[in-house]
Simulated assay, not measured.
Amino acid sequence: MFDAAFLRNDLAPTFRQMNSSALGCARGGIGVVPCALVYVEIDSTGSPNCKSADPFCYVEQAITLNRSMKAVGLPGLTVATNVADDVTRYLEKVDTDARPYVLQLAPSKLTLPRNTRFYGAHFKLDMMEQLGAMLHEGELLMVLDTDMLALRTVNEELLQRCQTTGVGAFDISDQEFSAYGDGRVIDDLETVAGGHLQNPRWFGGEVLLASPRFVRELVPCAHACFERYRRVINELNHNGDEAFISAALNLLSDDGHQIIDLGANRVVGRHWSGNTHRDLRWFKGCSLLHLPGCKRLLERQARRPVFSAAHVWRSLVVRHELNRPVWPLRRWMRSRVRSPFGHR
């Protein structure tokens, strides 16, 4: 693990200064520190869900996410990356107000083959550990994926509940169990957790709200789960951070931690165009949308002179209607192939 004291003493003042205007809600309530990982690795396998050959496409997604968050009154986004100088130079072409904050990650001690699917996503644990060490008491770390869009601010009472329990996570067990079989998913979870789980749940990696106290408990547990994950990585159906973070959250839940479900409270919705799992209108009431199938749409928004959430929503509606007839066929074909599942 990294030297948390070093990071707090040497880097936290810089982070605190550059992000001071972003901390806290508009009404002076719970302080929220949104962050997203942009891990640039040219020679890794990368994400099968990303069709762009440009490794900085994730920066463009982060620009759109940052613009959308500011538009609804949420704090600005901090991008944690392994190549801060390169990302900062890339952002020079963007208006100052649209630029997310950039933070250089300390070198990682996580080791895994570079040809691992969703290789970069694994280092989200580093971001959580390092940014978690910078939090003040009373703040919440908001861990996000870059391919997201903010539609409205997060309910203050919900943030208070997350602060009280220490954590809010996105329970997507209903989707994972039905898509891949509960037996397969639970077997993966218990393998990575290292034993039987009382109530196995799968948590999506696109959003996590965590207090400093909870981060301090989660990180070592997730590191232990990662080591088990790494040893059996070729036997698992899932590659990515969701496997070992979900396993760690389950272990902490079994120890008595209550986990607020951010999906049930419509803090976040994971939307694939055409998916009839929920009516499209349900997603419009979410604070945050995860759009793993619309990465290029979000990247194009970063290059528009004026950000418009309404423009993005209209595009989502059109894509949804066009894909509705073919979505059942896609799901049937996937069920026949039974391919391994991974990071969304």
Rank of each mutant, 00 (worst) to 15 (best):
S253I: 09
T45L: 15
F56M: 09
L159F: 08
A309P: 02
G204Y: 04
W313A: 09
D171N: 14
V318S: 12
F203Q: 01
V32Y: 02
H320L: 07
C57Y: 04
T81C: 03
S108G: 07
V102G: 03
T96Y: 13
S173W: 03
C35V: 14
D255E: 14
G76Q: 11
V317E: 14
F177L: 04
L291K: 01
Y101W: 13
P292Q: 03
E92P: 02
G256F: 08
F244C: 06
E129Y: 09
A121S: 08
H136K: 12
D171Y: 02
D95W: 05
V59L: 07
W202Q: 05
F118S: 00
P13C: 09
V267F: 12
P200G: 07
I42V: 15
R296D: 10
N237C: 15
F6A: 15
H290L: 02
N239R: 14
S47K: 00
F283V: 05
L11E: 15
V102K: 04
A84W: 06
M18Y: 11
D255M: 08
H343D: 12
R270S: 05
H277Y: 11
M127C: 08
A84E: 09
D182R: 15
P13A: 12
F283C: 11
R344G: 07
P220W: 10
V306C: 10
D95R: 14
S108K: 05
T14F: 12
H277Q: 14
D254W: 01
F307P: 02
N66Q: 13
L262S: 11
A224G: 09
M148I: 10
K93F: 05
L289F: 12
F123N: 03
